[in-house]
């Protein structure tokens, strides 16, 4: 069986406006240097690295939220690298994203009902409202929340709405970008367990972007370690944590604070 997402030699760069000459184009800073990665169906793949390592850029580039300079993104056998807006919009329901900051990613002037139903309503789904209610129920929020606004919820509840919005279209692939980093520890556990349950239950493929290695270890089937826009190491989770190959990965693993310092990994 082929991979669901297949990325080859992906290069992404941003224009550096600070160094832009008076006339002419700004020089570009390359943030992804030829990433090659295959994500198998139903897998949870962790993408870890320090901030600035390019992991969020990679997540966004896979979903075509950032235009790549070079390389190829194949989604379920379709090359989506150069698809135009219209064709891309038709495919959008199949790959979704959960954002880091739900306060910013949920429109503050829309009720949860509208927020969750919007992706379906755009496609003229007549059952959008019912499906939104189901999705809210699936993430464990009571239906009376449907009439509320995002600012009336707690951080953890907001992030559950983010998950509901992503799963309401039954996507094949979800990118979750640092979705737990803004939450307190107990909300983190609730949100991550919920996401894991939903993904396993529906067989959805998940790219889980995080800087938190202990969370990645618990959640993911395989891990990609990134640094400076390159993949340093990619392996099954158990392999990576037991026998890390690169020095960089070993350093990251050593930096994990241990719950019981005497215990050895």
């Amino acid at each position: 069986m082929s991979a669901l997402v297949d990325i080859r030699d992906l290069v992404v760069s941003y224009p550096d406006m600070a160094r832009k000459p008076l006339l002419g184009a700004a020089p570009r800073n390359t943030v992804l240097h030829g990433i090659t990665l295959a994500v198998g169906r139903g897998q949870i793949i962790g993408i870890v690295g320090e901030s600035g390592s390019g992991k969020s850029t990679l997540g966004r580039a896979i979903l075509r939220l950032i235009e790549p300079d070079q390389g190829q993104i194949v989604f379920d056998g379709t090359d989506i690298t150069h698809l135009d807006d219209r064709a891309l919009r038709a495919l959008r329901p199949r790959f979704q994203m959960i954002f880091q900051d739900p306060m910013s990613s949920l429109n503050p002037r829309q009720t949860l009902h509208r927020l969750i139903a919007t992706p379906l309503a755009i496609r003229g789904d007549t059952q959008a409202m019912d499906k939104a209610a189901n999705a809210l129920d699936r993430v464990g929020l009571p239906s009376r929340f449907l009439a509320r606004y995002p600012h009336e919820l707690s951080g953890g509840q907001r992030q559950r709405v983010g998950i509901a919005r992503a799963i309401v279209q039954s996507p094949d692939f979800i990118v979750a970008d640092e979705i737990a980093s803004g939450l307190d520890v107990s909300s983190q556990a609730v949100v991550l367990t919920l996401l894991q349950d939903i993904v396993r239950e529906t067989g959805t493929t998940l790219a889980f972007i995080s800087h938190d290695l202990s969370v990645v270890r618990r959640l993911c089937d395989s891990v990609v370690v990134m640094a400076g826009g390159k993949i340093v190491e990619a392996a099954r989770t158990t392999t990576l944590f037991n026998t890390p190959q690169s020095g960089y990965t070993r350093k990251l693993l050593e930096a994990i604070p241990l719950p019981e310092p005497d215990q050895v990994w």
């Binding site: 979903l63 939220l65 807006d85 919009r89 038709a90 959008r92 329901p93 979704q96 994203m97 954002f99 880091q100 900051d101 910013s104 990613s105 949920l106 429109n107 503050p108 919007t118 992706p119 755009i122 496609r123 919005r165």
Partner: peptide, 17 residues
């Protein structure tokens, strides 16, 4: 610049909408 604009993009909404 808020993420909800990008979220609308992910949801498949056109730029004008």
């Amino acid at each position: 610049r808020m993420d909800y604009t990008e979220a609308a993009h992910v949801a498949g909404m056109s730029r004008f909408a």
